[in-house]
Amino acid sequence: MYSDALLVKTSELYYYSRMSQAEIGRVLGVSVPTVSRILQEAMERGIIEVRIRDTLTRTADAEEALKKKFGLLDAVVVEIPQDTDGNFLRKLLGKKASELLPRFCDRGGTIGIGCGVTIREMIESLDRSRRFPDLRIVPLLGGWGKEEPERETNRLASDMGNILGCAFSYLLAPAIVSSAEVRDLLLQEPQIQLTTRLWDSVKTAFFSIGPELDRMFFPYIPAEYLDMEKARKAGGVGDVLGRIIDGKGREVPIPYNGRLVSIPFETLKNIPRRVGIGGGPQKYRGIYAALAGKLVNVLITDFETSEYLLHLEAMEHDGI
Protein backbone atom coordinates (compact mmCIF):
# COMPACT_ATOMS: atom_id res chain seq x y z
CA MET A 1 0.00 0.00 0.00
CA TYR A 2 1.44 3.32 -1.09
CA SER A 3 1.27 6.67 0.69
CA ASP A 4 -1.37 9.21 -0.29
CA ALA A 5 1.35 11.67 -1.28
CA LEU A 6 2.89 9.17 -3.72
CA LEU A 7 -0.51 8.28 -5.18
CA VAL A 8 -1.37 11.94 -5.77
CA LYS A 9 2.07 12.81 -7.16
CA THR A 10 2.06 9.88 -9.59
CA SER A 11 -1.48 10.63 -10.71
CA GLU A 12 -0.64 14.29 -11.36
CA LEU A 13 2.42 13.38 -13.40
CA TYR A 14 0.41 10.89 -15.48
CA TYR A 15 -2.82 12.82 -16.07
CA TYR A 16 -1.84 16.49 -15.72
CA SER A 17 1.74 16.47 -16.97
CA ARG A 18 0.95 13.78 -19.59
CA MET A 19 4.17 11.89 -18.75
CA SER A 20 4.57 8.26 -19.75
CA GLN A 21 4.89 5.58 -17.08
CA ALA A 22 8.54 5.12 -18.02
CA GLU A 23 9.21 8.86 -17.55
CA ILE A 24 7.40 8.82 -14.21
CA GLY A 25 9.48 5.82 -13.14
CA ARG A 26 12.68 7.74 -13.86
CA VAL A 27 11.43 10.81 -11.93
CA LEU A 28 10.36 8.75 -8.90
CA GLY A 29 13.18 6.22 -9.09
CA VAL A 30 10.84 3.20 -9.43
CA SER A 31 10.15 0.61 -12.11
CA VAL A 32 7.40 0.89 -14.75
CA PRO A 33 5.40 -2.01 -13.18
CA THR A 34 5.52 -0.13 -9.87
CA VAL A 35 4.14 3.03 -11.53
CA SER A 36 1.36 0.93 -13.00
CA ARG A 37 0.51 -0.52 -9.56
CA ILE A 38 0.52 2.98 -8.01
CA LEU A 39 -1.94 4.27 -10.62
CA GLN A 40 -4.15 1.21 -10.13
CA GLU A 41 -4.24 1.75 -6.36
CA ALA A 42 -4.98 5.48 -6.87
CA MET A 43 -7.98 4.50 -8.94
CA GLU A 44 -9.17 1.88 -6.43
CA ARG A 45 -8.91 4.35 -3.54
CA GLY A 46 -10.82 7.06 -5.42
CA ILE A 47 -7.93 9.48 -5.91
CA ILE A 48 -8.38 9.03 -9.64
CA GLU A 49 -11.93 9.23 -10.88
CA VAL A 50 -12.83 8.17 -14.42
CA ARG A 51 -15.84 9.79 -16.04
CA ILE A 52 -17.03 8.75 -19.47
CA ARG A 53 -19.10 11.42 -21.16
CA ASP A 54 -21.85 9.93 -23.31
CA THR A 55 -22.17 12.62 -25.96
CA LEU A 56 -25.03 10.87 -27.72
CA THR A 57 -27.06 10.83 -24.53
CA ARG A 58 -26.45 14.45 -23.63
CA THR A 59 -27.22 15.77 -27.13
CA ALA A 60 -30.38 13.68 -27.24
CA ASP A 61 -31.40 15.07 -23.84
CA ALA A 62 -30.70 18.61 -25.07
CA GLU A 63 -32.82 18.03 -28.17
CA GLU A 64 -35.76 16.84 -26.12
CA ALA A 65 -35.40 19.76 -23.71
CA LEU A 66 -35.34 22.29 -26.56
CA LYS A 67 -38.43 20.77 -28.14
CA LYS A 68 -40.29 20.87 -24.84
CA LYS A 69 -39.21 24.34 -23.71
CA PHE A 70 -39.73 26.10 -27.03
CA GLY A 71 -42.53 24.00 -28.53
CA LEU A 72 -40.39 22.89 -31.48
CA LEU A 73 -41.29 20.28 -34.05
CA ASP A 74 -37.71 19.05 -33.95
CA ALA A 75 -34.22 19.94 -32.77
CA VAL A 76 -30.79 18.72 -33.81
CA VAL A 77 -27.91 19.32 -31.39
CA VAL A 78 -24.34 18.52 -32.39
CA GLU A 79 -21.17 18.15 -30.38
CA ILE A 80 -18.21 20.23 -31.47
CA PRO A 81 -14.54 19.90 -30.50
CA GLN A 82 -13.08 22.45 -28.12
CA ASP A 83 -11.59 25.58 -29.69
CA THR A 84 -13.63 25.05 -32.86
CA ASP A 85 -13.62 28.12 -35.08
CA GLY A 86 -16.69 29.61 -36.72
CA ASN A 87 -15.92 28.13 -40.12
CA PHE A 88 -15.82 24.58 -38.82
CA LEU A 89 -19.01 25.11 -36.82
CA ARG A 90 -20.83 26.39 -39.92
CA LYS A 91 -19.62 23.38 -41.90
CA LEU A 92 -20.83 21.00 -39.23
CA LEU A 93 -24.25 22.66 -38.87
CA GLY A 94 -24.63 22.85 -42.65
CA LYS A 95 -23.86 19.14 -42.90
CA LYS A 96 -26.51 18.34 -40.31
CA ALA A 97 -29.03 20.47 -42.19
CA SER A 98 -28.26 18.58 -45.40
CA GLU A 99 -28.93 15.30 -43.61
CA LEU A 100 -32.25 16.60 -42.29
CA LEU A 101 -33.46 18.03 -45.59
CA PRO A 102 -34.62 14.78 -47.30
CA ARG A 103 -37.19 14.29 -44.53
CA PHE A 104 -38.88 17.47 -45.71
CA CYS A 105 -38.82 16.84 -49.45
CA ASP A 106 -42.56 16.47 -49.91
CA ARG A 107 -43.64 15.24 -53.32
CA GLY A 108 -44.50 18.31 -55.35
CA GLY A 109 -43.48 20.56 -52.46
CA THR A 110 -41.61 23.86 -52.36
CA ILE A 111 -38.54 24.56 -50.24
CA GLY A 112 -37.52 28.12 -49.48
CA ILE A 113 -33.93 29.05 -48.65
CA GLY A 114 -32.08 31.99 -47.22
CA CYS A 115 -28.45 32.82 -47.87
CA GLY A 116 -25.16 32.78 -46.02
CA VAL A 117 -22.17 30.53 -45.46
CA THR A 118 -24.13 27.94 -43.47
CA ILE A 119 -26.73 27.57 -46.23
CA ARG A 120 -23.96 27.21 -48.78
CA GLU A 121 -22.37 24.51 -46.61
CA MET A 122 -25.74 22.75 -46.41
CA ILE A 123 -26.07 22.74 -50.20
CA GLU A 124 -22.50 21.57 -50.77
CA SER A 125 -23.04 18.71 -48.29
CA LEU A 126 -26.17 17.36 -50.00
CA ASP A 127 -26.12 13.73 -51.12
CA ARG A 128 -25.74 13.97 -54.90
CA SER A 129 -27.06 10.47 -55.40
CA ARG A 130 -30.53 11.40 -54.15
CA ARG A 131 -32.86 13.18 -56.57
CA PHE A 132 -36.15 14.89 -55.88
CA PRO A 133 -37.54 15.90 -59.30
CA ASP A 134 -40.92 16.97 -57.89
CA LEU A 135 -39.45 19.70 -55.68
CA ARG A 136 -39.01 23.40 -56.36
CA ILE A 137 -36.39 25.60 -54.66
CA VAL A 138 -37.33 29.24 -54.02
CA PRO A 139 -35.17 32.11 -52.67
CA LEU A 140 -36.73 33.88 -49.68
CA LEU A 141 -34.86 37.14 -50.21
CA GLY A 142 -33.00 38.98 -52.92
CA GLY A 143 -29.27 38.97 -53.54
CA TRP A 144 -26.73 41.24 -51.90
CA GLY A 145 -24.86 42.06 -55.10
CA LYS A 146 -21.56 40.73 -53.81
CA GLU A 147 -19.03 38.37 -55.34
CA GLU A 148 -19.36 35.87 -52.50
CA PRO A 149 -21.55 32.97 -53.72
CA GLU A 150 -23.10 32.58 -50.28
CA ARG A 151 -24.70 36.04 -50.61
CA GLU A 152 -26.41 35.36 -53.94
CA THR A 153 -29.66 33.52 -53.32
CA ASN A 154 -30.26 32.85 -57.01
CA ARG A 155 -26.96 31.03 -57.28
CA LEU A 156 -27.69 29.05 -54.12
CA ALA A 157 -31.16 28.12 -55.42
CA SER A 158 -29.82 26.99 -58.78
CA ASP A 159 -26.96 25.01 -57.19
CA MET A 160 -29.41 23.29 -54.85
CA GLY A 161 -31.86 22.59 -57.66
CA ASN A 162 -29.16 21.10 -59.85
CA ILE A 163 -27.89 18.84 -57.06
CA LEU A 164 -31.39 17.61 -56.19
CA GLY A 165 -32.45 17.37 -59.83
CA CYS A 166 -35.45 19.64 -59.31
CA ALA A 167 -36.89 22.94 -60.47
CA PHE A 168 -35.80 26.25 -58.97
CA SER A 169 -36.91 29.86 -59.23
CA TYR A 170 -34.93 33.08 -59.41
CA LEU A 171 -35.82 36.20 -57.46
CA LEU A 172 -34.73 38.97 -59.81
CA ALA A 173 -34.30 41.64 -57.15
CA PRO A 174 -31.66 42.98 -54.78
CA ALA A 175 -31.99 42.21 -51.08
CA ILE A 176 -31.88 45.90 -50.15
CA VAL A 177 -33.06 48.96 -52.08
CA SER A 178 -32.89 52.71 -51.50
CA SER A 179 -36.32 53.21 -49.92
CA ALA A 180 -39.51 51.47 -48.85
CA GLU A 181 -41.28 53.11 -51.80
CA VAL A 182 -38.83 51.59 -54.27
CA ARG A 183 -39.24 48.22 -52.54
CA ASP A 184 -43.03 48.40 -52.87
CA LEU A 185 -42.81 49.27 -56.57
CA LEU A 186 -40.32 46.49 -57.18
CA LEU A 187 -42.60 43.93 -55.56
CA GLN A 188 -45.35 44.85 -58.02
CA GLU A 189 -43.27 43.78 -60.99
CA PRO A 190 -44.79 40.66 -62.62
CA GLN A 191 -41.39 39.01 -63.13
CA ILE A 192 -40.63 39.34 -59.43
CA GLN A 193 -44.10 38.23 -58.39
CA LEU A 194 -43.54 34.96 -60.24
CA THR A 195 -41.33 34.05 -57.30
CA THR A 196 -42.76 36.03 -54.39
CA ARG A 197 -46.19 34.46 -54.96
CA LEU A 198 -44.58 31.07 -54.40
CA TRP A 199 -43.73 32.09 -50.83
CA ASP A 200 -47.27 31.21 -49.79
CA SER A 201 -46.79 27.64 -51.02
CA VAL A 202 -43.45 26.98 -49.26
CA LYS A 203 -43.70 23.93 -46.99
CA THR A 204 -40.19 24.09 -45.52
CA ALA A 205 -37.80 27.02 -45.11
CA PHE A 206 -34.07 26.68 -44.38
CA PHE A 207 -32.25 29.78 -43.16
CA SER A 208 -29.38 30.73 -40.91
CA ILE A 209 -29.83 32.99 -37.88
CA GLY A 210 -27.61 36.03 -37.86
CA PRO A 211 -25.07 37.14 -35.22
CA GLU A 212 -24.83 40.21 -33.01
CA LEU A 213 -25.04 43.54 -34.81
CA ASP A 214 -21.43 44.37 -35.50
CA ARG A 215 -20.11 45.78 -38.74
CA MET A 216 -17.51 43.00 -38.95
CA PHE A 217 -20.31 40.43 -39.33
CA PHE A 218 -22.25 42.41 -41.95
CA PRO A 219 -19.68 43.72 -44.45
CA TYR A 220 -22.07 43.00 -47.35
CA ILE A 221 -24.65 45.56 -46.16
CA PRO A 222 -23.84 49.16 -47.19
CA ALA A 223 -23.25 51.32 -44.11
CA GLU A 224 -25.56 54.00 -45.48
CA TYR A 225 -28.44 51.51 -45.41
CA LEU A 226 -27.87 50.07 -41.94
CA ASP A 227 -26.64 52.10 -38.97
CA MET A 228 -25.47 49.38 -36.61
CA GLU A 229 -25.38 51.59 -33.53
CA LYS A 230 -28.95 52.82 -34.05
CA ALA A 231 -30.12 49.27 -34.73
CA ARG A 232 -28.56 48.08 -31.48
CA LYS A 233 -30.06 50.99 -29.52
CA ALA A 234 -33.45 50.08 -30.99
CA GLY A 235 -33.06 46.63 -29.47
CA GLY A 236 -31.55 44.67 -32.36
CA VAL A 237 -29.87 41.39 -31.39
CA GLY A 238 -29.51 39.61 -34.74
CA ASP A 239 -31.30 38.96 -38.00
CA VAL A 240 -33.52 36.42 -39.70
CA LEU A 241 -33.55 36.46 -43.51
CA GLY A 242 -32.03 39.93 -43.42
CA ARG A 243 -34.59 41.45 -41.05
CA ILE A 244 -33.14 42.85 -37.83
CA ILE A 245 -34.99 41.49 -34.80
CA ASP A 246 -35.21 42.40 -31.13
CA GLY A 247 -34.99 40.03 -28.18
CA LYS A 248 -38.59 38.91 -28.67
CA GLY A 249 -38.12 38.07 -32.33
CA ARG A 250 -39.96 41.16 -33.58
CA GLU A 251 -38.77 43.36 -36.42
CA VAL A 252 -36.94 46.39 -35.10
CA PRO A 253 -38.69 49.58 -36.37
CA ILE A 254 -35.80 51.00 -38.38
CA PRO A 255 -35.85 52.21 -42.02
CA TYR A 256 -33.51 49.40 -43.07
CA ASN A 257 -36.15 46.71 -42.44
CA GLY A 258 -38.59 48.57 -44.66
CA ARG A 259 -36.15 48.51 -47.58
CA LEU A 260 -35.68 44.75 -47.68
CA VAL A 261 -36.89 42.45 -50.44
CA SER A 262 -37.37 39.50 -48.13
CA ILE A 263 -40.25 37.26 -47.14
CA PRO A 264 -42.48 39.08 -44.59
CA PHE A 265 -42.53 37.52 -41.14
CA GLU A 266 -46.29 37.03 -41.26
CA THR A 267 -45.78 34.88 -44.37
CA LEU A 268 -42.76 33.12 -42.88
CA LYS A 269 -44.74 32.11 -39.79
CA ASN A 270 -47.32 30.40 -42.01
CA ILE A 271 -44.68 28.02 -43.38
CA PRO A 272 -45.24 24.64 -41.67
CA ARG A 273 -41.54 23.87 -41.10
CA ARG A 274 -39.15 26.75 -40.40
CA VAL A 275 -35.63 25.38 -39.97
CA GLY A 276 -33.30 27.84 -38.26
CA ILE A 277 -29.59 27.03 -38.26
CA GLY A 278 -26.94 28.63 -36.10
CA GLY A 279 -24.61 28.31 -33.15
CA GLY A 280 -21.79 29.94 -31.26
CA PRO A 281 -21.66 32.79 -28.73
CA GLN A 282 -22.16 35.54 -31.32
CA LYS A 283 -25.55 34.04 -32.19
CA TYR A 284 -26.87 33.18 -28.73
CA ARG A 285 -29.20 36.15 -28.44
CA GLY A 286 -30.33 36.02 -32.06
CA ILE A 287 -31.25 32.34 -31.83
CA TYR A 288 -33.13 32.86 -28.59
CA ALA A 289 -35.02 35.77 -30.14
CA ALA A 290 -35.93 33.73 -33.22
CA LEU A 291 -37.29 31.00 -30.95
CA ALA A 292 -39.15 33.47 -28.75
CA GLY A 293 -40.76 35.05 -31.79
CA LYS A 294 -41.83 31.67 -33.23
CA LEU A 295 -39.83 32.37 -36.38
CA VAL A 296 -38.23 28.95 -35.97
CA ASN A 297 -39.88 25.63 -35.16
CA VAL A 298 -36.99 23.34 -36.13
CA LEU A 299 -33.57 24.22 -34.71
CA ILE A 300 -30.11 22.97 -35.70
CA THR A 301 -27.43 24.11 -33.26
CA ASP A 302 -24.48 23.00 -31.12
CA PHE A 303 -24.53 21.70 -27.55
CA GLU A 304 -23.03 24.78 -25.90
CA THR A 305 -25.61 27.01 -27.60
CA SER A 306 -28.41 24.67 -26.52
CA GLU A 307 -27.24 24.97 -22.91
CA TYR A 308 -27.34 28.75 -23.13
CA LEU A 309 -30.82 28.74 -24.67
CA LEU A 310 -32.21 26.42 -22.01
CA HIS A 311 -30.55 28.41 -19.21
CA LEU A 312 -31.91 31.70 -20.54
CA GLU A 313 -35.39 30.23 -20.96
CA ALA A 314 -35.31 29.00 -17.36
CA MET A 315 -34.31 32.49 -16.18
CA GLU A 316 -37.11 34.07 -18.22
CA HIS A 317 -39.59 31.57 -16.80
CA ASP A 318 -38.48 32.34 -13.26
CA GLY A 319 -38.57 36.08 -13.92
CA ILE A 320 -34.88 36.55 -13.22
Rank of each mutant, 00 (worst) to 15 (best):
T10D: 10
Y15N: 11
M19V: 04
S20A: 09
Q21A: 15
G25A: 12
R26C: 01
S31I: 12
V32K: 11
R37N: 15
I38C: 06
I48T: 07
E49I: 08
V50T: 14
I52H: 09
D54V: 09
A62K: 01
K67Y: 02
K69E: 09
G71F: 02
G71M: 02
E79A: 14
D83C: 12
G86L: 04
G94T: 11
G112V: 01
G114S: 00
G116L: 02
V117Q: 12
E121F: 06
I123P: 10
R131M: 08
F132A: 10
P133E: 00
L141N: 04
N154D: 08
R155C: 05
G165S: 04
I176H: 03
V177L: 04
S179W: 09
V182K: 11
E189F: 14
Q191H: 14
L198G: 00
F207A: 03
G210W: 02
E212D: 10
L213W: 03
F217G: 08
M228F: 14
G238C: 14
I244K: 07
D246T: 09
G247K: 13
Y256E: 06
N257M: 09
V275F: 15
G280M: 08
Y284R: 11
G286L: 01
A289G: 01
L291I: 04
G293C: 02
L295T: 11
V296W: 04
